[in-house]
Design a protein around this nucleic acid. Structure first.
Length: 480
DNA sequence: AAAAAAC
């Protein structure tokens, strides 16, 4: 077994309590019950992250003396309509997150300016673009489409639709529709001012003239690096944009923007303001990242079952490579007496909706899935993410998929909560892939050993049992 | 050799 990269800590190199993630930075002194994070390398309670924000202004808004540049410290300063502020209060959003402080003034100001924004998972990107969209909509034309939001999966499009409806719940006559397969009436077409959808369906609706795009003022691409990069969807996003008004305000959001995609993003959203975080700040500090050293592939399943008790303390997402293995693991686990569900693209849309709704509400607590849920899905109760298969990119499984790793583990640790990720490694290839990921992000991963179950339980429980929401950010209003 | 996304 060759070069296990130095970033992965071997038991001989370090004590069992080795660092999980960089020690969290000091809090801003809210004094409202926020626990001081423990200093033993394991995240407990809440984690306050210090952000290193880089802002590059568009030529159109290049006045650095402008208050737009320095950001706001409260939602009130944005001067949004009362109905929107009431929606924020109802969601328990009391104070803007970092990305919201800096991006919102730039996005809602006139003339509308494009934006490319990169911010960690669970830091409030969705609310940032939702507020912008709501600020642009003329509610006196409730069925005239004015804003379009695109996402890479059915689930994410529905989730965004839900957030818009929740924040906009006091906006009279606000109609939001999801443009996903089966959701728009063939008779009437789109009858909403705000549309959240997936690229294929949106394009289809426009071609059938069931979606009047002539009055669209804002286009949001969520998970933009994924949307613009991939052959299929990148193509579709370009074609959709080609059918929209030329002056549309384009907002691109993601937790990751690899360089080559960033170059394309700048063409897609020209003259954009750019906000991004430094490379080393990319991983979410509240997530204790671990790896399970499995003796061989066949043992992975048994180890997974052993983890079931820990998985159900909160909620857990298990990521596997293929639809078939997701279903197969579900079948076996159920036969072994565990309650789990499996969600992937082979299932009917309605079935997928029901499965995710059950998971959100806590009716189901363990969800086995593919990369379909790697990005964007926000379920606040998720305290554990398992990479049953390490994410790889390309056909030959040659390279680890850095971005997907980050997005997957970002399903936990949302809004300042803590969470655990456990990546399964079992052979040279999987070791090496995870090592590269650890190197790339500068991670210190904690090793878990199947033959020392007590230590595993202790390490995982310590984190999960202390997970709870920050008081000043929104707990997810979509979760029941 | 995969996932996703349209009819």
């Amino acid at each position: 077994m060759a070069d296990l990269a130095s970033r992965i800590t071997k038991p001989s190199d370090a004590p069992a309590e080795d660092a999980v993630a960089p020690a969290p930075a000091a809090t801003e002194g809210q004094g409202n019950g926020t626990e001081e994070p423990a200093d033993d390398g394991v995240n407990k309670g809440l984690v306050e992250t210090t952000y290193d924000v880089e802002v590059k202004l568009s030529d159109l808004q290049a006045d650095q003396d402008s208050p737009l540049y320095s950001g706001v410290s409260s939602f009130e300063e944005l001067g949004l309509p009362k109905s929107i502020n009431d929606g924020l209060l109802a969601m328990n959003f009391k104070k803007p997150s970092k990305i919201q402080e800096r991006a919102l003034p730039l996005m809602i100001s006139d003339p509308p300016t494009n934006m490319i924004a990169q911010s960690q998972s669970g830091t409030g990107k969705t609310a940032a673009f939702v507020l912008t969209v709501l600020s642009r909509v003329d509610l006196t034309k409730p069925t005239q489409p004015q804003a379009l939001l695109l996402a890479p999966s059915r689930e994410l499009a529905r989730q965004i639709q839900g957030v818009i409806q929740t924040i906009g719940q006091f906006c009279d006559n606000l109609i939001v529709e999801a443009a996903i397969p089966g959701s728009i009436s063939r008779e009437t077409g789109v009858q909403a001012s705000v549309v959240a959808g997936t690229p294929g369906t949106v394009m289809d609706l426009i071609r059938r003239r069931q979606f009047d795009v002539s009055q669209l003022k804002a286009l949001v691409i969520d998970e933009a690096d994924n949307m613009l990069d991939q052959q299929g969807m990148g193509d579709q996003c370009v074609r959709v944009k080609g059918m929209l008004p030329k002056t549309i305000q384009t907002l691109l959001f993601s937790a990751t923007f690899p360089d080559k995609v960033m170059n394309f993003a700048r063409k897609y959203a020209p003259n954009a303001n750019e906000i991004k975080l430094r490379h080393t700040e990319l991983t979410v500090k509240g997530i204790s990242q671990m790896y399970m050293d499995c003796p061989d592939e066949s043992k992975k399943y048994d180890i997974l079952c052993k983890l079931y008790g820990l998985m159900t303390i909160g909620s857990s997402v298990i990521f596997v490579k293929t639809r078939d293995s997701a279903s197969e693991i579900q079948r076996r686990m159920e036969a072994d007496g565990h309650k789990v569900s499996a969600l992937h693209g082979a299932h009917e849309g309605q079935n997928r909706d029901a499965l995710l709704d059950d998971f959100r509400s806590g009716r189901s607590k363990v969800l086995i899935t593919t990369n379909v849920l790697a990005r964007g899905i926000d379920v606040s109760s998720v305290s554990m993410v398992i990479n049953y298969d390490i994410p790889m990119k390309g056909f030959g499984d040659k390279e680890p998929d850095m971005e997907t790793y980050l997005h997957r583990i970002g399903r936990t640790g949302r809004f300042g909560r803590v969470g655990v990720s456990i990546s399964f490694v079992y052979d040279h290839k999987s070791y090496e892939a995870l090592s590269k990921i650890a190197d790339h992000y500068g991670l210190d991963l904690v090793q878990l050993r199947p033959d020392d179950w007590d230590a595993t339980e202790t390490k995982v429980q310590e984190v999960i049992k202390s997970s709870r929401a920050r008081p000043d950010y929104a707990p997810n209003a979509l979760d029941k």
